[in-house]
Simulated assay, not measured.
Amino acid sequence: LNTLILYKSRAALQGKFTLLRDTRTDGSFLVHHFLSFYLRAGCKVCFVALLQSFSHYNIIAQKLGVSLTAARERGQLVFLEGLKSCLDLLFGEESESGQPGPLQFISESASNLKALFDFVRTSLTPTDSDSWQGPVLLVDDLSVLLSLGAAPVAVLDFIHYCRVTVCSQLKGNIVVLVHSNEDSEDEENELVVNSLCHHSDLILWVEGLATGFCKDVHGEIKIIKRVSLELTAEQDHVQIYQYKIQDKNVTFFARGLSAAVL
């Protein structure tokens, strides 16, 4: 995947916003790829995990040769377990620090994601003792914030402030996964997805096959490099591949060139 999007190191995408978008399929394999990639590159990672538990991500990361437990213990990984945080808020559990939880907006009337932004900023702001290569914010998945009651404007404001802090000030990277369905009646989610597409430096859009399920081809990935953001006369670069997910890796190939077909 790194070869397809033409970067071999963290520095190649410094200060960039990458949008992972999936339609009619599960694009979480991209989240696992970027999580293991940035941890191996020695980056400080703040992972806002709203979809699955820590143990789920850790099991898959171990298959990819990375231990999330070890990364968290040495301070390289800051992990927000959204499922646990939501339950603590709903059942009135106090946080260990006594401070408002990052997902405090769930129990408030106002849709304010300031506490979540403060959590990200505090987690990624380097200290004198830090020796990490650079900060990375990873979100899986942003659509969950809407389901929890956050307004689209609040979600977009949160991403905007994160971009200013992580990408512009700290010269780090942001990777965000969103689910989308162009035929959906969920107008709020589509508003957020379309807005993020306009502001992304790189879009990895995975879709299920229009012809239905196939055991040898699991979907299509569209790689969109937003050259137009650089105010040049060039159009965005678009590449389309098909892929097959295996136990420990993913195989990419040109459309119609699956090993099963050939």
Score class of each variant (00 low, 15 high):
residue 256 G to A: 05
residue 242 Q to T: 11
residue 74 R to F: 06
residue 6 L to S: 14
residue 177 L to D: 06
residue 57 Y to E: 07
residue 100 P to M: 04
residue 105 F to S: 03
residue 61 A to C: 03
residue 226 R to G: 02
residue 56 H to N: 06
residue 188 E to K: 02
residue 68 L to S: 04
residue 117 F to S: 13
residue 261 V to N: 06
residue 15 G to M: 01
residue 2 N to I: 05
residue 161 Y to W: 13
residue 65 G to I: 07
residue 11 A to I: 14
residue 253 F to C: 06
residue 160 H to N: 11
residue 99 Q to R: 07
residue 17 F to A: 03
residue 137 L to M: 15
residue 139 V to C: 06
residue 103 L to Q: 05
residue 229 L to C: 07
residue 187 E to Q: 11
residue 79 F to T: 00
residue 71 A to M: 01
residue 69 T to S: 06
residue 246 Q to Y: 05
residue 219 G to E: 02
residue 153 V to C: 07
residue 42 G to K: 01
residue 92 G to V: 14
residue 249 N to M: 06
residue 113 L to H: 04
residue 187 E to D: 11
residue 96 E to C: 08
residue 69 T to V: 01
residue 251 T to H: 08
residue 130 D to T: 11
residue 206 V to S: 15
residue 146 L to P: 11
residue 77 L to P: 04
residue 118 D to E: 15
residue 165 T to E: 15
residue 210 A to R: 11
residue 64 L to M: 03
residue 207 E to M: 14
residue 241 Y to Q: 09
residue 180 S to V: 06
residue 231 L to H: 10
residue 206 V to C: 07
residue 199 H to I: 15
residue 167 C to W: 04
residue 230 E to F: 15
residue 152 P to T: 09
residue 66 V to A: 00
residue 247 D to Q: 05
residue 32 H to W: 07
residue 246 Q to P: 00
residue 224 I to E: 03
residue 10 R to W: 07
residue 89 L to V: 00
residue 88 D to W: 08
residue 5 I to W: 10
residue 256 G to I: 10
residue 162 C to Y: 02
residue 256 G to Q: 11
residue 130 D to Y: 10
residue 82 G to R: 02
